[in-house]
Design a protein around this nucleic acid. Sequence first.
DNA 1: CATGAATGAGAATTCATTCAT
DNA 2: TATGAATGAATTCTCATTCAT
Lengths: 216, 216, 216, 216
Amino acid sequence: MAYRRTERVEKVLRDKRERILHAVRAVVGEVGFRGAQVAMVADAAGVAVGTVYQHFPSKAELFAEALGLNAQHEIDVMAAVVAAEGSAATRLAAAVRVFAYRAVEARRLAYAMMAEPAEPAVDAARLVYRGAIGELLEGVIRDGIAAGEFPEQDPRASAACLVGAFMEGLVGPLAPGSSDVSDTRALVEAISVFCLQAVAGQRVAAHAYPAAEVKA
Amino acid sequence: MAYRRTERVEKVLRDKRERILHAVRAVVGEVGFRGAQVAMVADAAGVAVGTVYQHFPSKAELFAEALGLNAQHEIDVMAAVVAAEGSAATRLAAAVRVFAYRAVEARRLAYAMMAEPAEPAVDAARLVYRGAIGELLEGVIRDGIAAGEFPEQDPRASAACLVGAFMEGLVGPLAPGSSDVSDTRALVEAISVFCLQAVAGQRVAAHAYPAAEVKA
Amino acid sequence: MAYRRTERVEKVLRDKRERILHAVRAVVGEVGFRGAQVAMVADAAGVAVGTVYQHFPSKAELFAEALGLNAQHEIDVMAAVVAAEGSAATRLAAAVRVFAYRAVEARRLAYAMMAEPAEPAVDAARLVYRGAIGELLEGVIRDGIAAGEFPEQDPRASAACLVGAFMEGLVGPLAPGSSDVSDTRALVEAISVFCLQAVAGQRVAAHAYPAAEVKA
Amino acid sequence: MAYRRTERVEKVLRDKRERILHAVRAVVGEVGFRGAQVAMVADAAGVAVGTVYQHFPSKAELFAEALGLNAQHEIDVMAAVVAAEGSAATRLAAAVRVFAYRAVEARRLAYAMMAEPAEPAVDAARLVYRGAIGELLEGVIRDGIAAGEFPEQDPRASAACLVGAFMEGLVGPLAPGSSDVSDTRALVEAISVFCLQAVAGQRVAAHAYPAAEVKA
DNA sequence: CATGAATGAGAATTCATTCAT
DNA sequence: TATGAATGAATTCTCATTCAT
């Protein structure tokens, strides 16, 4: 009689696949794409190197999928924030804050996902991520312009600048490497103000907008 | 009779060393640090691999010097712009524009110089570059705050955000890959406005500030 | 189900590691340390270059271990001979003969192990070897002096001279390159007599001491 | 009118050639054959690398000639000692001492010349050297046997053993690296006694034979 | 002739990918 | 399926030798 895969077996497999995908995030967050080797990922996942190749055809595709997964999660979070009720400025402030707080908790990973070059397949996945983030921001900016909240501007360019501004502000060497919570909070607020002013084109009082709730 | 190095020979040698340094820029501008191999650089310089090692002790030091050279030039240009007469806003606008116009002409290189991870020696050189750019911008921001032109803000954080904003705006995937001059010009202007608004905290009319002269 | 290393697999791995170590001996015995390349060793072991690096962290450590292994075996053999019953002269004669017979079978290797300069790690392993051989001989000489068999002398210096004498006598160019057993036997006897006379300070009749049994 | 090489020019050339040959000795004495690079030799001679190749067709031939030159000098010294008046034992003692004292002053060079493997051409030169030294010793041993001073023995094998004994006794790791003159003197005497006893087959009182005069 | 920069074959080492068990 | 040792192409760096000045 033919062997039929039980649900339990399916589950274990999915778990193993996911363990590997999680391991990629852990390793990339530690050493970046440049230093991430397949053997490290296998170790971190508690599987053999060969097992990695049983589930993924190549390093590039594995990393691309891992990156994409992570990206989709971030995009979902930001989409939720952006879709909330409120003025464009409020929603934009919330988006910047949520992105910043999440990135600050995993700077290395966030940097790798935003900027670190890798194989073409991985880069492609990154483009999707950045594109999605950019579109969300672009949408809010368009809304703001339409509502007369924001002055006329190129929404695409502004969105790109926003992404750059908060990435650099967070992971760039100009930002102190401090992990002190108060410093981090102050930094994120400074960045938020910068971004809001840039888009809204007017003086933004600190804490003019309530900080968004940050969920894992 | 002892052979004595002629000026002509000195010239050729200097030229060769510089050819190699230029080749690094060319290759990095093409494939980034990640893909740049010593053999490629040698090829691009029209010399043998060994020749590269006659002039530089290691790949890392060669790349660090090439990066540093390029960086210093950029820093000099921006320093000159920033040191000019005028309001803080005018000088900041000029700085952003000059940086942007130069970067847009060599996006891949500019990106590599600003962000791409590499050997520690290269990264160290990059920190110097980013630090210098950041300090120049920070200075102008401080001047603007002191003069009452700009609202209170964290000048360090704002400077970092500025750098990120114009880097991303230029080399990020959101920015169209077009090299069409008119597009480029519009893009640079959009970025400039974004940056000025962010720092000045008020609506900046496009072309409110005359574009700086860009010299090679 | 987790893969579990079988005894059979363990065996193969041990064999492979040992094949590589043996290959080092074979290659060094052929071309010396100077000419021994990792690729040659891999070839001789019937494995890929990468496999060598899977088992040993570097060429130096591989060669050091191979040398050390060989050395320890030689030391063990000589220690057993030296620890036997009998007069100091008998034991010394046996030690010289056993060393000589073994060395004559692998002159190039014996030479490389005794004298050829190599990486520091290999040289360090060699020092241990020579030190051990020297100490064994020194002990016998001290015993002989204490028992009144040998005249007063510097046991350290004598031991060093002994080592040099039989090394040179065997691998030096003055010794005929013949591998003819009768020639070899005569040569070893001549060297034994030389060494015994040198230490004992008196005429030693050829075959005064029974030849030691030589085991592989 | 054809240019005719003056004696003065000839002299300068010979000097340059000799400077290079001397430089080889200096460098080999410092770092051995293994570490001796052509560029080092050129530096030590105060000439350019190319100049070395103007005088010698290859590194191997340069080193071979340098070694041969040095060897011939050593052979001449030992030949003079061996050709002196006196019993075989006296002459042998003198030969051992003169070799030992000279070697002790330049252990690295002496070792390289006696034992360190190198290119075939250099090795060939070494063989000539060792052969010559061996033959001189062999001659004295034959004389001693003929005169009834020494017991019957294989003169070739004994000569080889002698060479090995004093080389090892001097440069081997068993001999302390001391450069203290008294230690050196004691060491050389211990070696001399060892060698004399080995060949003569009888107890040799220390200082039984007057030490030879050592000339540079 | 002297010079020394240029050359490039070669050697050690790494790491993504495969495959026998 | 899982395993992890084996593979070997690719990359950096060295140094004997050449040759234009």
